[in-house]
């Protein structure tokens, strides 16, 4: 099922367009790659193109698993804790645990500053 969704992206002409319907900006990807470490020197022109599709697949998978968490909680709004639950439950997302965990621990430390916030959900 997910495979079919991924393949349909190939037929939309997003490859050669600057930002096709399923692509992400290549210049931004290159900046993030360059900032990932001092050792990164040169980047082939095709590497950001691979990443634009890979990030598409990554966002799709993370969104799908997070949505499963949301519906298990009988909710129809995707929240940050749904993403955290999906990360914890999926082995290949282990590298993200510190990212979501740091936010959690920081939140605990800042509990005394909590104010009531109403979220506007766009749809």
């Amino acid at each position: 099922m997910r495979q079919a969704g991924a393949y349909s992206g190939l037929l939309c002409g997003g490859v050669s367009g600057r930002t096709g319907p399923h692509s992400l900006p290549l210049a931004r990807i290159k900046k993030i790659m360059k900032n990932s470490g001092e050792g990164v020197k040169m980047i082939s022109g095709e590497a950001p193109i691979i990443f634009s599709k890979a990030c598409d697949l990554f966002i799709e998978e993370l969104t799908r698993r997070s949505w499963i968490m949301a519906i298990q909680g009988k909710r129809r709004t995707l929240h940050k804790e749904d993403l955290a639950s999906a990360v914890i439950a999926t082995d290949i997302f282990d590298f993200l645990i510190t990212l979501v965990s740091n936010s959690d621990s920081h939140a605990v430390g800042g509990a005394t500053n909590v104010m009531e916030v109403e979220t506007i959900d766009y749809s």
Partner: peptide, 15 residues
């Protein structure tokens, strides 16, 4: 489905 603002920010960081 709706997506909360904190989920949007978090997934940006994850990418």
């Amino acid at each position: 489905a709706k997506i909360s603002d904190d989920a949007k920010e978090t997934i940006q960081e994850c990418v």
